[in-house]
Design a protein around this nucleic acid. Structure first.
Length: 674
RNA sequence: GCCGCGGUAGCUCAGUGGUAGAGCGCGUCAUUGGUAAUGACGAGGCCGAGAGUUCAAUUCUCUCUCGUGGCACCA
């Protein structure tokens, strides 16, 4: 007599099942409702197919649509397979490669048959339709174990070069699995999958776009066509997601930047920003804020050259590694003809010396550090700079304010002894925290570890990584609350880095802040200090930034606040709008009083109706609108309409000035007066 | 840099092998109106750049450029 399997359920009960039975059988035994609702099973913590028999006694939790994270992952993976099957059914000869789930759906990378052009968005409706047909057909999805040799043979026979290549690299001897869709299509896959295609909702997915992607993510490999889709458990979720996308598009900083007249970009300086008065006001407020923060925490601000001899960049190692992304200029006077019209492309003299526009501030800061002789008593030395840098970014990378060719960092370098590193990094964690909190961001801290290509000894990397780890632990941030995580291979070539990833109002994350513990550059540029023992020692150099770059940070703020910036950052903090022109005099008086209080205020004396003015300044996202009519002028009051609030408040002018002044105080200054 | 899509008025976009249209915005005039669009009239375009096909190109083809969605990159 065979022994029954003991299957423990989440409620603590235990069911005895025949050997060979599967989670589906358990579900059926519990009830027909659950049998229908079950999508997959968690067996001893591992997500598995519903029909895959138990290997032994096990803990079982059935996954239904209520277990949303697991369920979404499953259906998205299934949609991806369905996509591949649909494409191959419609276009025989198409090679398939990979198709994982993503954060909002799925994609599949395919190679169109040589006989036709790569797929385009025009093909999407037909593919979608075919996917729906496959769902309706309710094809069972069946797991099957294959040997590696059989798999390779199968892919080679089918002309699936990519799949064959991949199969050859899979470990010998390990059980490999394929999934059949019905009896006529299969893909190599670890699984798990739903029991059949009919479990998917034909109205809960949408193919969204087509893009190129390299085979195995490597630029030197062939380029495949990636078909993206968004996939959900039901139609309602899909609709909600599409709605969210629209909402995100509304807060696009490029759109708001134009509408709010903050900045513009144009061809002649692509990748560099033309800041308009209103946009630059945000910048000035941020810069003033950051200066106060850095002044208060022991930094000293410097300003270093934009242009340095290329040899300096060779010595630092940047020229060798990043020359193609640097802007170099010959140190010569361009030839100009007699009319003063120089040739559009001046010829460069053969023996001209080359200068490079700085792509970063670090070497210049080391140079400043090296002036004179530094004693250990002077350390740590914290040198800050609002450093304007240029990098010749790949064209495809440029994006509004988020990725630009000219940017200004809130940069600083801390030169300190080895003993001081952990405390300096810990203090930085604290500083960064106070800044991000002031803007209402939550964030995650991550540690990017040594990359494959790197400078410096293993011992130094061991030390540098451990210091950062220790510092975060001391700051109390090495835990789940701060999303603490280590990222192997993601560090810079000269140092491991801590990264701050902000989460914005609609849940997107942005990497902004960083601190990096560098022993390479001080060595390459021969920075030293005199120690207690009278000998020369290498300082450790900490590279750090909190905003990252002003351009990008402003872009993030615009999107985070959907343009409705906090009063202290709003370019125009209040508009005074008289209802009739008789009141212009009083409006000007109100404006003058607010101005005297340091408020950025404008008055709108145009010959327009109040409705029009209210609408316009609301759309312009002015935080406070001061409406004044005959009544207010007589009583010496203002009717305040605050952006985002329905009710207006009428209050005496003097009171309003105090109120607004308080609302417009930057958060770091508000703390002190509180 | 690679793949796909795009570039028409300040903005959002329509349109056509015979050198252009709307709405908003802008200007002028009238209107002085209590909280999200008052009306009338008017100005405004090398249809991204260059080359080709054609009697004729904003329209078709090619190259370039910029933007855009991805990929790759991100010191």
């Amino acid at each position: 007599m065979t022994q029954l399997l003991k299957i423990s359920l989440p409620d603590g009960s235990v069911r005895e099942m025949e050997p060979g039975s599967s989670p589906a059988d358990v579900a059926a035994a519990i009830g027909p409702g659950l049998a229908k609702a079950a999508l997959a099973a968690r067996v001893d913590g591992e997500v598995r197919d519903l029909n895959r028999p138990f290997d032994s006694d096990a803990e079982l939790a059935l996954i239904t649509a209520r277990d949303e994270a697991d369920a979404l992952e499953l259906v998205r993976h299934d949609y991806a397979h369905l996509l591949a099957e649909a494409v191959q059914t419609l276009f025989p000869g198409t090679q398939i490669t990979f198709g994982p789930a993503t954060s909002d759906g799925f994609y599949y990378d395919v190679m169109a048959p040589a006989s036709r052009d790569p797929f385009s968005s025009e093909d999407l409706p037909a593919i979608e339709e075919k996917m729906r047909e496959l769902i309706k057909a309710d094809k069972p999805l069946r797991r099957e174990a294959w040997s590696r040799a059989d798999l390779i043979a199968k892919w080679e026979a089918d002309g699936e070069a990519f799949k064959a290549e991949w199969a050859k690299e899979l470990p010998e001897g390990e059980e490999l699995t394929v999934y059949w869709s019905g009896d006529d299509w299969l893909d190599m896959c670890r699984g798990p999958h739903l029991a059949s295609t009919g479990k998917l909702d034909p109205d809960a997915f949408k193919l969204t776009r087509i893009a190129g992607a390299y085979w195995r993510g490597d630029q030197s490999n062939p380029q495949l066509t990636r078909i993206y889709g968004t996939g959900w458990l039901n139609k309602k979720q899909l609709k909600q997601h599409l709605h969210n996308l629209e909402e995100a598009a509304k807060r696009d900083h490029r759109k708001l930047g134009r509408e709010m007249d903050l900045f513009h970009l144009q061809e002649e300086a692509h990748g560099s920003v033309f800041w308009h008065p209103k946009g630059y006001m945000i910048w000035r407020e941020l810069e003033a804020y950051m200066r106060r923060k850095m002044d208060a925490t022991g930094y000293r601000e410097i300003k270093t050259p934009q242009l340095m001899d290329v040899r300096q960049w060779e010595q630092s190692g940047h020229w060798g590694k990043y020359a193609e992304n640097m802007f170099a200029v010959p140190d010569m006077v361009p030839q100009v003809d007699e009319d003063g019209d120089g040739p559009a492309k001046p010829t460069v003299e053969k023996d001209a010396d080359w200068m490079a526009i700085k792509p970063m501030n670090c070497p210049a800061h080391v140079i400043v550090f090296k002036q004179g002789i530094t004693s250990y008593r002077d350390l740590p030395i914290r040198l800050g700079e609002m450093g304007c840098c240029h990098r010749n970014e790949p064209h495809g990378a440029l994006h509004g304010l988020m990725r630009v060719r000219q940017f200004t960092q809130d940069d600083a370098h801390i030169f300190c002894t080895e003993e001081q590193v952990v405390e300096e990094v810990r203090a930085f964690c604290e500083l960064a925290n106070s800044v991000y909190k002031d803007f209402g961001f939550t964030y995650h801290v991550k540690l990017a570890l040594r990359p494959e290509k790197r400078f410096g000894s293993e011992a130094d990397w061991d030390k540098a990584e451990q210091e950062l780890r220790d510092a975060v632990a001391e700051a109390g941030m090495a835990n789940d609350e701060y999303g603490w995580e280590e990222l192997p291979g993601e560090g810079a070539f000269y140092a491991p880095k801590l990264e701050w990833h902000l989460t914005d109002a609609i849940g997107r994350t942005w990497q902004v802040g960083t601190i990096q513990g560098d022993r390479v550059l001080p060595d390459r540029l021969d920075a030293t200090y005199v120690g207690e023992d009278g000998g020369r020692h290498r300082p450790v150099m900490l590279h750090r930034a909190i905003f990252g770059s002003y351009e990008r940070f402003i872009g993030i703020l615009i999107e985070h606040f959907a343009g409705r910036l906090p009063v202290w950052l709003a370019p125009v903090q209040a508009v005074v709008a008289p209802i009739v022109s008789d009141i212009d005099g009083y409006a000007s008086e109100v404006e003058a009083k607010l101005k005297a209080a340091g408020i950025r205020v404008e008055s709108d004396l145009r010959n327009e109706k109040i409705n029009y003015k209210v609408r316009e300044h609301s759309l312009a996202k002015v935080p406070h609108l001061f409406v004044v009519g005959k009544r207010e002028a007589e009583e010496g009051t203002v009717a305040i309409r605050t952006l985002g609030e329905k009710e207006q408040r009428v209050m005496p002018l003097d009171e309003a000035v105090v109120m607004l002044k308080q609302a417009a105080t930057p958060p770091d200054l508000a703390e002190q007066t509180a």
